[in-house]
């Protein structure tokens, strides 16, 4: 990762290169920096959600109107929104990018997060929805590439980002 570039910078640059300028989000501790920067960026329309499936609807509506969008949430939000993703977006063939914090694996530290790490990938696979796990910031080029795949395949594509890919390491 080039010096001075945090994961949030790299993710937002990737979104912009893919033509995404509308973001709907619900916070997670690991997503704080990314969401704060989306909110502060005048080139991005940022919609604050109360439930993640509304984000699926907003991204879908944006695509219908010719605008590219992304949903940013925790993987628990992917689980909550699976009916909207697998039912509406898949069925209507509506593409957008989902950037989700992949909570509940070796890099997490809470009992109550663990089910999310166990469930998210199998549930996405069962729903027939493409997804990739991003282990660290060196793989954040997948934001742009994943978005391009989503729009070419007319399906929502989910990137599951581990802690290292979202939270900047502190110096010293």
């Amino acid at each position: 990762m080039p010096q001075g570039e945090t994961p949030a910078h790299l993710i937002i640059a990737g979104l912009k290169r893919a033509g995404i300028d509308l973001v709907a989000s619900l916070p997670d501790q690991w997503l704080g920096d990314l969401i704060e920067q989306c909110d502060a960026d005048p080139a991005i329309t940022h919609v604050k959600l109360a439930r993640e499936d509304d984000g699926v609807g907003i991204c879908a509506g944006a695509f219908l109107g010719g605008r590219k969008a992304a949903l940013i949430c925790q993987n628990a939000g992917v689980l909550l929104a699976i009916n909207a993703l697998g039912g509406m977006a898949f069925h209507h063939q509506i593409p957008f990018l989902v950037i989700a914090a992949q909570r509940g694996a070796f890099d997490d530290g809470y009992y109550y997060q663990m089910y999310k790490g166990r469930l998210t990938e199998p549930v996405l696979k069962a729903a027939g929805l493409p997804h990739y796990v991003i282990d660290g910031p060196e793989h954040l080029h997948l934001v742009e590439q994943g978005a391009r795949q989503a729009f070419l395949s007319r399906l929502p594509l989910t990137l599951l980002l581990r802690r290292n890919a979202l939270v900047a390491k502190r110096e010293g």
């Binding site: 919609v47 509304d54 609807g57 509506g61 944006a62 109107g65 010719g66 605008r67």
Partner: peptide
């Protein structure tokens, strides 16, 4: 006109996304 389908509950947010796009 965009006609909704299942799942229910999603279409107000679809309208919001469309309004922001257009």
């Amino acid at each position: 006109t965009y006609f909704a389908s299942d799942p229910m509950g999603l279409w107000a947010s679809v309208a919001l996304g469309l309004a922001l796009a257009r």
